[in-house]
């Protein structure tokens, strides 16, 4: 009778102890995951990579996402330029006109030159330019 009582007690204690350990793990695991950097940079990333330098041939362009906004990166013979890829007219995503070396909007034929200036069509303002820095062969686009 007595030994049975002791046996039951230890089992309950063992269960309780195991439960508390599980609880502690359940607490620590998400915390560690939370503190682990979710991406290389924290909130409001200062710069985003557009790829390796050698991935861009001369006059090659690429549209990347920077903080959820499309950005067009152009490799000119003088170096890299990056502009907001949102047309200032009605917000379409611009494309690259390889023949004329101009940024073109597919919607209403807005045209921008390599300084982002409007050279044709209805856009009221130039495209916003982003800073570009080539760091360790990586083309980094600076946000704002």
């Amino acid at each position: 009778m007595n030994s049975k009582n002791i046996h039951r007690r230890t089992f309950l204690d063992w269960l309780l102890g195991a439960g508390l350990v599980v609880w502690a793990i359940g607490f620590v695991a998400p915390v560690v995951a939370y503190l682990w950097p979710a991406q290389r940079r924290g909130p409001g990333a200062q710069a985003v990579s557009a790829g390796k330098q050698q991935d861009f041939a001369e006059w090659q362009t690429k549209i990347i996402a920077l903080n959820g906004q499309p950005v067009i990166v152009i490799r000119t013979p003088q170096g890299f330029r990056a502009f907001s890829a949102i047309c200032t007219h009605l917000g379409c995503i611009v494309t690259w006109d390889a023949a004329r070396h101009l940024v073109a909007c597919p919607c209403h034929a807005g045209l921008f030159d390599l300084n982002g200036r409007v050279v044709g069509g209805p856009p009221p303002r130039p495209l916003m330019e982003y800073g570009v820095a080539v760091v360790n062969n990586e083309v980094m686009i600076k946000s704002a």
Partner: peptide
């Protein structure tokens, strides 16, 4: 974030369509 980019693309096509 990705969905907003997709929407922007849809918006581009829609605006093209209107023209």
């Amino acid at each position: 974030d990705d969905e907003q980019l997709q929407l922007q693309e849809a918006h581009t096509h829609l605006t093209q369509l209107e023209a």
